[in-house]
Design a protein around this nucleic acid. Sequence first.
DNA 1: TATGAATGAGATTTCATTCAT
DNA 2: CATGAATGAAATCTCATTCAT
Lengths: 202, 202, 202, 202
Amino acid sequence: MAPRSDEQFEQIRQQSRKNIQETALELFARQGYHSTTISQIAKAAGVSKGLMYNYFASKDDLLQKLVEEEVEAGVFALELAQQSFLPPYQQLELIVEETIRAVQTDVRHWKLLTTLSMQEEVMQQVKELLPQKMKESMALMIELFAKMGVPNPETEAWFFGATLDGLFLHYLTAQGTDIVYPLESMKQKLLSRYVAYKATNS
Amino acid sequence: MAPRSDEQFEQIRQQSRKNIQETALELFARQGYHSTTISQIAKAAGVSKGLMYNYFASKDDLLQKLVEEEVEAGVFALELAQQSFLPPYQQLELIVEETIRAVQTDVRHWKLLTTLSMQEEVMQQVKELLPQKMKESMALMIELFAKMGVPNPETEAWFFGATLDGLFLHYLTAQGTDIVYPLESMKQKLLSRYVAYKATNS
Amino acid sequence: MAPRSDEQFEQIRQQSRKNIQETALELFARQGYHSTTISQIAKAAGVSKGLMYNYFASKDDLLQKLVEEEVEAGVFALELAQQSFLPPYQQLELIVEETIRAVQTDVRHWKLLTTLSMQEEVMQQVKELLPQKMKESMALMIELFAKMGVPNPETEAWFFGATLDGLFLHYLTAQGTDIVYPLESMKQKLLSRYVAYKATNS
Amino acid sequence: MAPRSDEQFEQIRQQSRKNIQETALELFARQGYHSTTISQIAKAAGVSKGLMYNYFASKDDLLQKLVEEEVEAGVFALELAQQSFLPPYQQLELIVEETIRAVQTDVRHWKLLTTLSMQEEVMQQVKELLPQKMKESMALMIELFAKMGVPNPETEAWFFGATLDGLFLHYLTAQGTDIVYPLESMKQKLLSRYVAYKATNS
DNA sequence: TATGAATGAGATTTCATTCAT
DNA sequence: CATGAATGAAATCTCATTCAT
């Protein structure tokens, strides 16, 4: 009889919103943004079409919010390493391992992000977000290579980043085909390049 | 055998077709496949909507044909190098230089290809094409590294390919932003890894 | 008879109801009936959407109730004049002045009424209300002009009414533009037509 | 076999466009803008829903174009009189008669215009158009009264305009009810006010 | 009595494709 | 071979109303 409390309402909203977002991400990643309809999302999420518009202003807005959250998650590995206070080489190892783990865990999400980063049709805000995150990541990597004592840390950071992302590009492309991508030996090869800088505390 | 007018017709057909394809590629790359309408392509190409259906059975078919041609162009650098009969290291140099040149020349085309390779919503045939070309390229690269005498040529080929494609991914992402991507020094760095194998036949 | 709390409840109800009505009138007048949503009214009135349905059966019903009250207010000037027991010409003056005052005071309300009177899409009941009130007003005006001794009081009443309403139509149309409508001199001109009938009872 | 000529296409377009516009005007005027759906217009016009969007960018745009044309028609009587080179009083007569004729002929169109002029929800352009036309009309009327030798031609023009429009407001409101509006005697009364200025050439 | 999340019917809009000329 | 008006299926979006709490 008494109306639900503000906290109850807030909780319901959070849950519904999350439900819609996660369903949408799943479908966008599997079928692509344009090929996924609001009806499909609603049906998959078990809610009415209209409800989506209680939480997101439009289909575009939904994608927007989704990508923003995903992009934030994208630099997680780097921040994790930085805050681990491990020696630089071990941080590098951690970054590589964590990133591989993330990509393996969520192939679809990363495909979505990669696709969107290429598409100029995606909304302005997203287009601004990605290069910005790219810069932030690069800054962290440059700092790390500098600490390790690698010559030309900036060039090295770009190179390392390119190889890492190239690995994922290939890995993602190989998914769903009969190609078995040698992710593990690639990881070893990538790290082996910097193994000389490992023995910092000997 | 056929009367000359037939040949002329054929030539006109080819030109018209090519015109439509190139216009479509430009627009698909700039706006994405779904956000580009048949009307836009027709207007930009200076032909009628109806005419498009003389050359392509559908919008999907147009994309299909487009991607097929683009993918063929994608291994051009590798074949060029192979047929140059240069020493292996010089072939590698040629591959890197030619590929960079190609990507720089036609940013949009490569964005399109990369995007499409990620999208599961794109038609089945396209999806099959890319991994196949990936395999072909890998085979050529493995052979090249083997000739150069690099240990574990297979792993090396994957690694090399990942770095090269990662470079392009970053380069493409950086386009249209204020990031100036150090393509040239990346190229040097990539090749420097194999410089030890340069003087194999002296 | 009823316990005091019932009276209090009733008072609260009346206040809440009036609050909703006035907010709705404001919004309907500013944005039009169809462009105003129940949500907007609820938010602006500071109540929940659900509560609105405690007081009004539907959005249409809300408009209905609103218009009824407004229409009642519309003949107020005439009744006021009639009950003043002033000489006829002074009654005419009073009617003009009071009506002008009312329109100036509440531009939005009058815009709404005028708009609604034109729209056949508005519910049947409202459509019946306005001509009825029009007739009532005309009856009062005819009586007044007859008392003043104006020839053809019926035609004169229609003419007077047309001019008065025409003034308001123009005045309302001019609101929000850079046109400064000469309401005062129009008033003088309108009354000057009947000034000859002023000194009838001296 | 040969495609239609440009002229043929243009003619088809004109016809289709006109068909849609007139059907829409009829329905908007009868039911109001918001209560009329694109489906209704399409069905009544005997075309598909989609076709409307070949000619009008949106439902709003359709209304926009419609109102623009109607507003243009609104000053037709004034211009007609001005270009008749009749003596001023006869021009006034002509204006009154032509305007009455126009309103009688097309009750619905004028109801629509009057309604829209009141609604702030109608698009910006229309809102700007009406006061502008109002000014133009007033300028013409002031000139006319000045030529007639009426004192204070400006005030007189406003007054005349108000009465004329008031007549129509009442006439339109009376339509569809059992009130028989005395349009003819109103006309006489309106003109009689200026009959003293008739004998300009005696 | 009061709340606002949720519904769903129905509105607007898009656009690949067809087809008469 | 060439045209673009017309179609219609399917998409996105709106919002009055309901209802569990």
